[in-house]
Structure formats: structure tokens, C-alpha cells
Design a protein around this nucleic acid. Structure first.
Length: 245
DNA sequence: CCATTAAATTCAA
DNA sequence: TTGAATTTAATGG
């Protein structure tokens, strides 16, 4: 049973080969980003599963870009409750919120799997942003998307029922990470679903059980399968509409 | 929310 | 590969 592609870790190269996405911000602009004439324009780091690479309150020195693996971005509330802001996959940027004016991160980030990250210093990026409209435009699109999603999330948390928020979370994971052999391609604990949906673990379990009984999803352990995407979508769209990414 | 049990994962031999 | 140890899910108070 050791046939899974767990990780091809060894192949390190600065050109981002693993990523073929034409939409990838870094890929599209790799020639400037990895400018070899600028010393230490980027550094690569590996991050083990469960390792936190952004601490809340730490000073912002640059941006992270995910090369491989997945990451959760969260904010800690007053009573220690964790609010997961988003899940990020390869080609995405982490830590951009504090980029411009803010001095300290208001979020933390933890690798959900062993991950490889690129780190770009603030200075290097600022230079590029000033001189390269194409890159700046791509960044702006990224920010716009993030803002859109973030506004949407506020709405969903304030207006939707627990059940709807859990379904919304499932759909979000499904859209973003897809499924593999019928299961969502991202193993998350119930707690993590809860932290994203803004509920408790128990509530998530309850909703999952109900959905299982209604044959809308299947679940064994952390493997969640979407059985009836259309019905789930329908249930959400009654109250709300949702958007991508 | 907490305690209990069932189930699943990890780890080491 | 197996099963003991640890972690995680599920249920009921």
C-alpha cells in the first residue's frame, strides 16, 4: 500500500515546475521574481505538517507563496477560539494583508501538510511593484478576489444557519480542492471545519451525521465525499449565493 | 460544555 | 505486517 504519491519533495527548482497553471501569479512573473541579479530576492523554505510559519503579531517582512502543500490561515479570537480565514493551496499568496502599511501580522498560518514555500522580501517586491505594471495588475486582481471572498464570508457567517454554513464550507473545500476518488481532496478535522464555518466541532459532527443520513454526503474519518452536489448547492442558494475561490 | 466510547491513525518492532 | 499507543470522531448527558 505504499504506492501513493505522498510527496515528491526532492525536486527543488526555482522555476516552479510543479505549477503549470497559466493563472499562477508567480509562474507568469517568474522571470522578474526570481531575478538572479538581485541577491536573495527569494528564499525557499520547507514546512512540516502542523508547523506554523506565520505568528500572529510577528512583524511583516515579506510575503509567502505556496509552492506545494496546503496551508490554513487563521485569526485567534478573544476566548482562544480560532477563526479560519481561508485555506490556501499552491500558487497562492500568504501574508499579503499586512503587506502595505501594516507592521504586524494579524493572522497566523500553519501548514496542513508538508509544504514548500517561497518567501519574498518586502523590499524586493516593492521594487517589482513599482516597476512592473503587469505584475502589479495581477496582484491587484488577487487582492480584489480576496476582498470579494472575504466580504462574502462575513455575510455567510452573520446570516446563515449552522447547517448552511457547514454546507457552504464543504462546497468551498470542494470547489477549491476538488475530490479524489470520490472524497474531498483535503483531509480536515471536524474542528477545522468548525473553525472555518464559525461553529463548534460538535455542531459540525451533528450536521455531518444528518447529511449522511440524507445521503447528501459520505464520511469515513476525515474522508468526506460529496454525494449530491446539486442538492447541497441548492440548499445554500435558497438563502444566499456564493462565489468562488 | 464535558465525559465516554468507538473508530481511525501513527509508530515501532 | 501487526497490534499497541495515541489521536480523532461520535454520542449522550
Amino acid at each position: 500500500m505504499i504506492q501513493n504519491n505522498t510527496d515528491n519533495y526532492s525536486s527543488l527548482d526555482t522555476s516552479c515546475k510543479t505549477c503549470n497553471s497559466p493563472d499562477c501569479l508567480i509562474h507568469k512573473n517568474s522571470s522578474i521574481l526570481f531575478d538572479t541579479s538581485v541577491p536573495q530576492s527569494s528564499t525557499e523554505l520547507k514546512c512540516k505538517k502542523g508547523q506554523q510559519f506565520i505568528m500572529e503579531g510577528a512583524p511583516v517582512n515579506g510575503l509567502f507563496f505556496i509552492k506545494s502543500g496546503t496551508v490554513k490561515v487563521f485569526r485567534t479570537g478573544i476566548n482562544g477560539r480560532e477563526q479560519i480565514v481561508r485555506f490556501a493551496k499552491p500558487c497562492e499568496i500568504i501574508g499579503h494583508r499586512g503587506f502595505g502599511t501594516q507592521e504586524y501580522y494579524s493572522i497566523g498560518a500553519i501548514a496542513l501538510q508538508d509544504s514548500q514555500l517561497h518567501y519574498f522580501s518586502k523590499e524586493h517586491l516593492q521594487n517589482i511593484l513599482m516597476s512592473n505594471p503587469k505584475f502589479t495588475y495581477d496582484m491587484m486582481l488577487f487582492y480584489a478576489n480576496e476582498l470579494n471572498r472575504s466580504e462574502n464570508k462575513v455575510k455567510s457567517i452573520s446570516q446563515m444557519t449552522v447547517r448552511e454554513r457547514v454546507i457552504d464550507t464543504l462546497l468551498y473545500i470542494h470547489r477549491k480542492f476538488g475530490d479524489l476518488r470520490g472524497y474531498l481532496n483535503l483531509p480536515l478535522s471536524r474542528k477545522e471545519y468548525a473553525d472555518y464555518a464559525g461553529t463548534t466541532e460538535e455542531q459540525v459532527i451533528r450536521v455531518f451525521s444528518a447529511l449522511k443520513k440524507e445521503e447528501l454526503i459520505t464520511a469515513q474519518g476525515k474522508k468526506i465525499g460529496i454525494k449530491d452536489l446539486q442538492l447541497l448547492k441548492k440548499e445554500i442558494s435558497d438563502h444566499n449565493y456564493f462565489l468562488d475561490t
